[in-house]
């Protein structure tokens, strides 16, 4: 166990050290990028949803992609993984251009994503969901599928790997349930575990924490941090700043389709551009300060003061309406 912990910190330290000399500016060059994107643009009618000049993702590190709702984060994921087509731009994964590559080839190349709106395959059991994730299955070819002896052995190995992952994600008791019967948070976990079955080099998680209860958040954080220990690179979208602070080695901030800022979590979270993008009015305070205020309750007072009379006026109106309806 102590050895484990040591290597844990060693990997994290290595990632942080590698990023130490990277300038804290949008589009900064990384020492060993696994993913490089240039001039990626995506229009939806008049809206320029993604307009990324240059961004690099460091290999072996955990990078967070943050930004307000509608910043274009999911759209950017969709473009990179081939689920949506860019109007222009180019990007490479491991030095290989993936522009115009269909999603399944992107996944096979080692870049696997999850979805913001979870996609559990409802009428398949949890274990079948997991098995589906494994690549290079002999039994997935039409002719060999009819000859079970050609794929039995491989299937057993896949099942074993799937069960290990399920145990890690605390889903082993759900093994034979339909995925559709899982709760929202459990589906998130299943989707993440299933993505790992592909054996990816780069894992792209779209809001892995959304809808997961706080008790599970810690263990999920551990899972994500563990991916780095196993040599994977992680790029995740998240609104939960605690998660970003706890496990991200590097943070990229998007706003209105553009990369606004980049840097280690502490630096980025005190960047005024980020705070502008997120909070608008409270731009002169750092996130940490805001949080402190939140904890001491001063922010709540402020908010209540700002909202002032409004609720007091609204309540009686609603009330009379209700009584009329009720009687």
């Amino acid at each position: 166990m102590p050895d484990d912990n040591l290597s844990l910190t060693a990997k994290r330290e290595a990632a942080v050290a590698a990023l130490a000399d990277v300038p804290r500016e949008p589009g900064a060059k990384k020492p060993d990028p696994i993913l490089v994107a240039d001039d990626v643009k995506r229009h939806f009618g008049g809206l320029l949803a993604v307009d990324v000049d240059h961004v690099e993702v460091q290999r072996g590190a955990i990078t967070a992609l943050i930004g307000p709702n509608g910043a274009g984060k999911t759209t950017f994921f969709n473009l990179l993984t081939g689920f949506d087509r860019a109007n222009s731009g180019s990007w490479t994964f491991n030095g290989r251009s993936l522009h115009g590559t269909p999603p399944f080839k992107v996944a096979r190349a080692g870049m696997v994503r999850t979805f913001q709106l979870t996609k559990a395959l409802s009428k398949l059991t949890v274990i079948e969901n997991m098995r589906l994730g494994a690549t290079g299955q002999r039994g997935e070819s039409f002719w060999r599928a009819m000859l079970p002896f050609t794929w039995r052995g491989q299937e057993d190995a896949i099942t074993e790997r799937a069960e290990e992952l399920l145990a890690r994600f605390k889903l082993d008791t759900k093994r034979d349930d339909f995925a559709g019967s899982l709760s929202g948070g459990q589906r998130k976990l299943l989707e993440m575990a299933r993505a790992l079955m592909v054996g990816p080099e780069l894992v792209m998680l779209d809001e892995p924490m959304a809808g997961v209860n706080p008790a599970l958040t810690q263990s999920l954080l551990q899972h994500v941090a563990n991916l780095r220990e196993q040599g994977m690179t992680v790029l995740f979208i998240e609104h939960d700043m605690d998660m970003v602070r706890d496990i991200a080695d590097w943070v990229v901030v998007m706003g209105q389709g553009r990369i606004l800022a980049e840097g280690p979590p502490e630096t980025v979270m005190s960047d005024h551009k980020v705070i502008d993008a997120y909070l608008g009015a409270h731009h002169d305070q750092s996130l940490a300060e805001l949080e402190e205020q939140l904890e001491t309750g001063t922010l709540a007072e402020e908010v209540a003061a700002e909202l002032g009379q409004a609720p007091a006026e609204a309540v009686p109106v609603e009330h009379t309406g209700e009584t009329k309806d009720g009687r």
Partner: peptide, 18 residues
């Protein structure tokens, strides 16, 4: 299994490299 996956959600199956 791949077919059944496609019936449920083809994008999920694509994202798994099929």
């Amino acid at each position: 299994r791949v077919l059944k996956g496609i019936r449920e959600d083809e994008d999920a199956v694509r994202s798994l490299g099929k």
